[in-house]
Amino acid sequence: MFIETPQVTRRAVVGAAWSAPLVAALVAVPATASSTPETGFACLGDSLTADGGFGDVVADAFGWQHANLGVSGQTSTEVAFRFGALPLAVTVDGMRMPGSGPVVVDTLDPATSYRAGGATSKPFRYDAELMGIPGTFTEDASHDPPRLSFTRTDAGDAVAVPDGSTLRGTQGDAYRSDPITIWVGRNNIAAQADVLRDIDAIVASLAPKNSRFLVFSVTNSQHEPSGSVGYGQIAATNAAIEAKYPGNYLDVRRYLIDHGLAQAGLTPTAADLAAISEDRVPPQLHRDVIHFTDEAQKVIGHYATVVMLAKRWKLR
């Protein structure tokens, strides 16, 4: 389901503010709009996505089912792996997968941007395949460092696992043909090459001819004003993303700085004006130095919705 809005063009909605009545008119999708899990809408990313608000706005506007694939604290590499876009070459304990039960994963590659070779601060469990055998990839945080392991879904004969065997996440398999937002890089912004590699891998993993994806810009924190090292890293990464995906890049950072307060109905404070002068998102739109308020999430959702409508996105 989509709305004919011939008066709205990409030039009119990208980088420009719009009135509340215009947004309301654009997102007024009939209540009969519906989808199935196979034809829904996915948001892929880290904690900025896990917060969920912007995806709910988009899904409500189109009548789509929303799959929030955000996991707090993850780097772009971890996101790309669990989505199935970046398979890992691994070695396992004893070079053997038992007939049942877990096998310890000793090493993985690429390990750069996979936080200290795979260790994360939180336990996790993802559907995955090792050498094509379905199972679960798990981090056991009771160990120091945390222990990575793979457990096959169905018992069977023990299998030899040569060094460098492929471990692939399968979370994204159900969403490769669906509209999707990709918001990664905040947690490993210093590794620009890895961030760009991971975004490329995610896009390449989508179904052929699925051009219904938006790559969101990386946003700077309240501690990263213009001129800082972090700001420079973010600016360079965003420029590279925009150059690679000019028709699929959504500069939420720029929009929040230029129009976020007005769209949220907030009056700028002195702190907001100081932030804007340093090319930071106004602090009224942040709930901490990195993450956004519910109001800011709604602004992002409306911005993404209008751009999707201008692109004539619809469920297939």
Rank of each mutant, 00 (worst) to 15 (best):
Y245V: 11
A128V: 00
Q65H: 13
D93E: 15
D173T: 15
L250Y: 04
G172W: 08
Y255V: 05
A12P: 00
R312L: 04
Q171C: 08
A235R: 13
N68W: 14
N187W: 10
Y175K: 01
S113Q: 08
T77W: 07
T112Y: 11
E295K: 14
K122N: 13
P98K: 11
I241G: 02
A236Q: 09
A33L: 02
P102L: 06
L214R: 13
P146K: 09
P134W: 04
L69I: 12
R82L: 13
L130I: 12
R82Y: 15
R152N: 09
V58W: 12
I300Q: 08
T91H: 01
E242Q: 15
T170L: 05
A42R: 09
L266Q: 12
A42Q: 06
A274T: 11
R186P: 00
A28Y: 09
S142H: 09
D157R: 11
P283H: 09
G260S: 07
A262R: 12
T219S: 13
A24E: 15
Q263T: 02
N220Q: 13
L108S: 07
F54A: 03
S177H: 08
E38W: 00
W64C: 02
A31V: 14
K311E: 14
S228A: 11
S35H: 01
E278L: 12
D288H: 06
V57W: 04
D109N: 11
T166S: 15
Y126W: 15
R254W: 02
E224A: 15
E139K: 04
V159F: 08
L266H: 08
